[in-house]
Amino acid sequence: MSSDASVTLDLTMDPADLTAALVDVESVSDHEGPLADAVETALRALPHLSVHRDGDTVIARTDRGRDERVILAGHLDTVPLPTVEGSLGGVPATRRREADGDVIYGRGTTDMKGGVAVQLVLAHELTEPNRDVTYVFYDHEEVSSDASGLGRVMRNSPELLEADFAVLLEPTNGTVEGGCNGTMRFRITTHGKAAHSGRSWIGENAIHKQADVLARLSAYEARTVTVEGLDYREGLNAIRIGGGVAGNVIPDTAWVEVNYRFAPDKSLEQAQDHMREVFTGYELEWQDLSPAARPGLDRPSAAQFVAAVGREPMPKYGWTDVARFSEAGVPAVNFGPGDALLAHTDDEHVFDDAVRACHRALASWLS
């Protein structure tokens, strides 16, 4: 584990080797400073880039007067380190040769220091890209959305993030995943009248009143929606439920928390209106609201990017920061090395060749 604020990054390294070097710099959310310092120092040494710092977010830009500008973005922070003794998914990185190839184990290998390594190598290599490029390395992605470094820059310096198209290097197994579903959480509370359970007829059971809410959830038929050629599966589910105060008291309050994942054919407001229709008669207490993102695959730059990757694009079912770009008017896709199912696990890892393949695809597109 490295806590040295003077960490040095060599951007001429093979991207897989640089991935391991990045993992060695522990950067759990709220502790991104040393890694952000190292990234900033390495980028400021490149004369073809202008570099900006906002907190622990670092932005580097080419200004070659190209007809298009694209963004390559990735977050520097990771979730906390594994607590299980002997886990390989911690810090520092562990290199292994396995039957399927060379592998890097460690926290952030998949989510998402492999993608960040690719960004850094490209920032060094592409002195004359065919499109102007903005490289974004941001803090606080793995925590509450209101702490996001990307969101902070969008508020403080939105001009730095103006672009025609964006690629977020989240792990996608090397496949372009366009846009993302939106997500919202809300709570429905029912009320009754408290009473001793030995004289229950005097009271009014608030938990029983949740039966209608649960019946509507069970009966709901989630849609599959095609947007720009990609099929997005929606979902509506109860994720938490609670009520009651004691074993001999009829509860006067009960609540259920609901999560709705909605396709990018709807705005946030339209999705809210749909939920109000599904739960007519109930007040919805909004807990979290995150818009969906259209994939933007109809843009010429996106079509050329898909061609450079050489795989059929897929939809992104989970929410990612592509939604922030989309909301700012920048169509965005997810594309990065590693299996998203390994993110945050105790054996988080990425194959060396996956990092290199991601680098080759982006270099081909931008060269």
Score class of each variant (00 low, 15 high):
A5P: 15
A5L: 15
M13E: 11
L18P: 12
S29K: 02
S29V: 02
H31Y: 14
A38K: 15
A38Q: 15
L43M: 07
L43T: 09
L46P: 14
H48V: 07
R53F: 12
I59Y: 05
A60C: 04
R61N: 00
R64L: 11
R66C: 09
E68V: 00
H75R: 00
D77M: 10
P82F: 10
E85R: 08
G89L: 09
R96H: 03
R97M: 04
A99D: 14
Y105S: 08
Y105M: 03
T110F: 02
M112T: 00
A117C: 04
Q119W: 01
V121A: 05
T127I: 06
R131K: 06
R131F: 03
Y135F: 12
E142C: 07
D146E: 10
S148V: 11
V153D: 12
M154K: 12
M154H: 12
S157M: 05
E159K: 09
A163R: 14
V167E: 08
V167R: 10
L169T: 13
N173G: 13
G178A: 11
G178E: 08
T183F: 02
R185L: 10
F186S: 08
H196K: 01
H196N: 01
H196W: 04
S197G: 08
R199W: 05
I207C: 08
L217F: 01
V225G: 03
E228S: 06
G229R: 03
L230W: 14
E234S: 10
E234I: 11
G235Y: 14
N237L: 12
N237V: 14
I239C: 11
G243S: 08
G244K: 08
V245M: 13
G247K: 07
I250C: 12
D252N: 15
D252H: 11
T253C: 09
V256R: 11
E257N: 13
A263D: 13
P264C: 02
K266A: 01
E269L: 03
Q270I: 00
A271S: 13
A271T: 04
Q272A: 09
R276D: 11
F279R: 09
F279L: 12
F279N: 05
Y282W: 15
L284D: 12
L289D: 02
A292M: 02
R299K: 13
R299V: 07
S301Y: 01
S301A: 11
A302L: 08
A302I: 07
V306Q: 07
V306N: 04
A307S: 04
A307W: 01
A308F: 03
V309M: 10
G310C: 03
G310S: 07
K316G: 04
T320F: 02
D321S: 09
V322I: 10
V322T: 11
A328F: 09
V333A: 05
G336N: 11
G336K: 10
L341W: 10
L342G: 08
A343P: 09
D346T: 12
H349R: 13
C358L: 07
L362N: 02
W365M: 00
